[in-house]
Every structure is written in structure tokens, then in C-alpha cells.
Design a protein around this nucleic acid. Structure first.
Length: 479
RNA sequence: CGGGGCGUAGCGCAGUUGGCAGCGCGCCGUGUUUGGGACGCGGAGGUCAUGGGUUCAAAUCCCGUCGCCCCGACCA
């Protein structure tokens, strides 16, 4: 059960986050270092994200498949940059069935290699392209510092893997999927994100280009919420993914991969939560409306519950996810706080006075006391749906305003440092090298989150080197 | 892998000079409560991380081992 106050965000954001995750019943600690148990409420939130993605994947012609958890070690090594990127964080099985394995099996950190091997067999002709596959899976990356949902040793995600005949097709797919992630974040999770390209230093090991959506959390730190990679022909070359074109010539495929993970649950927590708990966007909220009955005696109780049963049916029938809090022995006040901790967007109170007057009390989670209102029971379902839409919009607007007010344009390193020191995001012309990036990270803690798609146009003067800069970059401290 | 800290009830913790294993929250029962975090009474719950040692006697002292947390390094 959720309960009691939480460390305020302003005092210690990290402590706030950890407490919220456990008190809102999203997750529980696990006996295995760096792993978590995702509890039903947290898993339902993930299912909401999954559902939103799944719908969009299917609408764009992707199919699900499933590939093995174990990957022959030699597969990883076929793509030089890839293996170098992942080696430090691999978990490897060397003994199975009581015997030393001839070839160690890597627990997948991602599946480009084993899927690449499969693709090389599935694809013969240009008629087999594009091949659009998605997999829902768990992956393991042996991280040294872990945090619930944000970075865990094992996490759940989807990984899309596609193969195309041309570079242009692959690029279009990569951008299309990034756009789907941005839609999911904005329309479902109410997190406005910035789309952009990763610097070479930050891109996926083995990719030609990596695109990202970056969201701002309430401590102003950046969180990479999803990535989409144009893998060029790197994996096609390593795994011999070829097709015969219309002219009977053998050609290498162009492949992509893209992923969004349970980290997104952490994003929802950190982008919207306040000192009273979670604030869930209605589109993803496992429970959209909770009804708290108010009564003093058995007579009132049966009257109140009767009315509630009718209202619940009406709401369910209208497609609203509603739950009645029938727990005995807890005061209404306790329940209010409990559901606020869990982030339920709308609370309804029904008491004897409401039964009598055919009213209901509605309270919005995204607002304070002024969010409480008395409404008629007539037309309640529509009223609730309208309010849910308002909450969704308001959360997104609040997140957008917060983000926009903490992004600042900079034209000198001094300025950039000031912005970053204050916790904000710095946007400025960039023409520096990878080594310059490393130095900035060292000195300020900030990294290039992305080169935003939205560019001012033309070229400018790099705020760091003073040289010519072809584009602006977004710098921030990140998770 | 370096520095620091902690392992005692489900969770959070106290336990002094070695002398009956404790507190708060939660849990179970019961009665009174209930429109913003109720209260009384009665209960259940322990391999004091682990192995050894000192002692009449160890949660407490000594040695070892394991695990976890924090800071640093690392982080497609």
C-alpha cells in the first residue's frame, strides 16, 4: 500500500524518485543486484506504453517475431564496432547442463547479430524487401550503476529490425520510427520530446547514424526516451544480408534497428510527478478514475455503493478505466492521498449528500484544491471523458512550458557553462570534435544530447572553438 | 577496481559496560470512527548476514567470509 509523505523533489530528486517508484507500487527491489521486480501497477503502465507502440507498429506494416535470448559469442564479434561497444557489459553463459560449453553464449544485450544472421537466410530477392520485424523481449546489460526503470541490468523493451533495398528506404524507416516514438511520448505519455541526431561519440555501436528523442525531466536533466538507428550496410556486410535486384545483381541490404524500453516508465514518473506522488497521463494510466465511497453507517453505505455501482457501469461502458476503492477501515482522507501517490488522474467522491442531490465530486490530480468540483450525475460519463482529455493536455502543456523555459541559446563557452551549471539545456552552434565533446563533458558534466532536427538554417560560429559550425547542438546533463 | 558505510521482525531503525530480542510503521482480530493521511484494546511475527574464536554468558568483543548501499572510475 502506498503511504506517507515522500522526500520533496526540491530536497533530493533522486531520493524522491526512488521513494515514488516503491511507494506508488510500480516496482519492488529484487534479490538480484541491479534488477527490479515490476509490480502489477508498474507493469500495467508499461502495457499502456506497449499498446501505444504496438498499434503504431502494426499500422506501419511491422510484424512481431521472437529470437533467442542466447547469442553465440562469435556473432557479437562479427561487427567490430558493435562488439567493442557492448563487451564491457555482457553477461555470458559458459556452463550449461553441467558442462562447459564449447562456445560461450551471450545473454542478448540487443539482437542485431542474431537477427542479422536470420535475415541473411530469409532474404533472397528484392521481392522479400522491405522486411519489417519487431520483437518484444528482455535484454541484459551489466551496468555498474543502476536505478529502477532508468538503468537496470535486465530490462524489457521492443527492438525493431528492418532490412531495405536502398539507403533511402532505410533512412525513411529510421526516421518514421523515430517519429512514432515522438508521437508515443507526446500523445500518450504527455512528454514533449526533441528529435535529433546523436553525435558520433554517442551513437549506437555499429550504426551509421543514431536518432534520438530527448525529454526533460523535472530536475531538468535529459533522458533519452527512444532511439532509432540507421545501420547502413555494416550489419548486412557482417552477416551477409544480400538480395538479388531486378537485374539479377547481388546487393547488400540496408538495415535499421530501433528501441524503446521500460525506461519510458521512469520518464513518465520524472516528467510529471510531484511531491504528492505520480501524475499519470490519462492515456497511459492503468486506472483513469478512482471512486472513493463516503459513508458513516451501513444505511448510508448501501445507498452510496448502489449509486457508485450504477456510475461505474456507466463509465466502464463509455470506455473509461474505473476502479472503486471499497477497502474497509481506511479513512477517505487516507485513500485520497494513496491514490494521489499512485497518480490516478481523476478521483470521484460519492457520499450521502451526492446521492441525495444526484451529484458527484470530481478532483483532478494535475491541479491542487481548485481542481475539485461538484458535478451532476447526469452526463457524468461525458464530463469525465472531457476532464481526462483536459488532464492529458494540461500535463503535456506543463511539461512543454517547463522544458521551453529551461532551454537557452548560448554563444560562448562561459554562457554555456552558466546554463548547464544552473541545470538547464544549452543550445548553440557546434563545430567541435569528439575530443572537444569529451572535454566539455569532463568540465561541465554535459553531453551533446542531439543535433535537433529543428535547425535555424545556415551556419554559425561554434561557441566552443570559435570556428565555423554547420549546425546547432543541444547540451545537457543526462541520465 | 579504489575510498567510505551498513547487515537485528515485511519496511525503517534502536540495542549503553557482554546478562530475558526491542521501538515505529505495516499485518491479524475487535469496537468506536469515516467529505483530506482516525483511535482504543488484544494478537501474530526473529537462523540478530555467515563461519570460526574469546567467555559461565555474545546482536554486543576478536578474526575471516559473503552481500548490499553511497562516492569515485565506467556507462551502446
Amino acid at each position: 500500500m502506498a503511504q506517507q509523505a515522500v522526500t520533496p523533489q526540491s530536497v533530493d530528486f533522486a531520493a524522491w524518485y526512488n521513494e515514488i517508484v516503491y511507494k506508488a507500487d510500480l516496482a519492488a527491489p529484487s534479490p538480484v543486484r541491479g534488477c527490479i521486480i515490476i509490480k502489477p501497477y508498474g507493469y500495467e503502465l508499461w502495457e499502456g506504453i506497449k499498446g501505444g507502440l504496438e498499434r503504431r507498429f502494426k499500422a506501419t506494416g511491422h510484424q512481431n517475431a521472437y529470437f533467442p535470448l542466447f547469442i553465440p559469442e562469435s556473432y557479437l564479434k562479427r561487427e567490430a564496432e558493435h562488439v567493442e561497444g557492448f563487451s564491457p557489459e555482457l553477461a555470458v553463459v559458459t556452463i550449461a547442463g553441467g558442462k562447459q560449453l564449447e562456445e560461450p553464449l551471450v545473454v542478448r544485450p540487443t539482437s542485431e547479430t542474431i537477427i542479422g544472421e536470420a535475415f541473411s537466410q530469409w532474404i533472397q530477392s528484392y521481392r522479400d524487401l522491405p522486411l519489417l520485424i519487431n520483437q518484444w523481449a528482455n535484454v541484459v546489460r551489466w551496468e555498474l550503476r543502476t536505478r529502477p526503470f532508468l538503468r537496470t541490468a535486465e530490462f524489457l523493451w521492443q527492438e525493431g529490425h528492418t532490412a531495405h533495398a536502398t539507403e533511402a528506404d532505410a533512412e525513411a524507416e529510421t526516421l518514421q520510427m523515430l517519429d512514432i516514438y515522438a508521437q508515443l511520448a507526446r500523445d500518450d505519455a504527455a512528454i514533449p520530446v526533441i528529435k535529433g541526431r546523436k553525435s558520433d561519440r554517442e551513437k549506437f555501436a555499429g550504426a551509421l547514424r543514431t536518432y534520438t528523442i530527448e525529454g526533460m525531466m523535472r530536475d531538468q536533466k535529459a533522458l533519452q526516451c527512444g532511439t532509432s538507428h540507421n545501420l547502413g550496410q555494416n550489419f548486412a556486410r557482417a552477416f551477409d544480408i544480400q538480395y538479388l535486384d531486378e537485374n539479377n545483381n547481388r546487393q547488400l541490404c540496408w538495415t535499421t534497428s530501433w528501441g524503446m524500453s521500460t525506461r519510458m516508465v521512469g520518464a513518465v514518473v520524472m516528467a510529471h510527478g510531484d511531491d504528492k506522488g505520480l501524475r499519470l497521463p490519462p492515456v497511459l494510466a492503468p486506472i483513469q478514475v478512482v471512486i472513493v465511497p463516503i459513508y458513516k453507517n451501513d444505511g448510508e453505505k448501501s445507498l452510496v455503493l448502489e449509486t457508485i455501482a450504477r456510475i461505474k457501469n456507466e463509465l466502464s461502458g463509455a470506455g473509461v478505466r474505473v476502479q472503486v476503492d471499497t477497502r474497509e477501515g481506511l479513512s477517505p482522507g487516507f485513500k485520497f492521498n494513496d491514490w494521489e501517490m499512485r497518480g490516478v488522474p481523476l478521483r470521484m467522491e460519492i457520499g450521502p449528500k451526492d446521492v441525495e442531490k444526484n451529484n458527484a465530486v470530481l478532483a483532478r490530480r494535475d491541479m491542487g484544491k481548485e481542481g475539485k468540483q461538484f458535478v451532476a450525475q447526469e452526463g457524468l460519463a461525458q464530463r469525465v471523458k472531457d476532464l481526462l482529455a483536459e488532464v492529458q493536455n494540461n500535463l503535456r502543456q506543463q511539461a512543454a512550458d517547463f522544458r521551453d523555459s529551461h532551454i537557452h541559446d548560448v554563444s560562448s563557452y562561459d554562457q554555456m557553462r552558466q546554463v548547464v551549471e544552473a541545470g538547464g539545456w544549452a543550445r548553440g552552434w557546434w563545430g567541435g570534435s569528439g575530443a572537444d565533446e569529451a572535454r566539455i563533458k569532463d568540465e561541465t558534466g554535459a553531453t551533446i544530447r542531439c543535433f535537433p532536427f529543428e535547425q535555424p538554417g545556415g551556419s554559425g560560429q561554434c561557441f566552443f572553438t570559435g570556428g565555423d559550425a554547420p549546425q546547432v547542438a543541444l547540451f545537457a546533463r543526462a541520465y
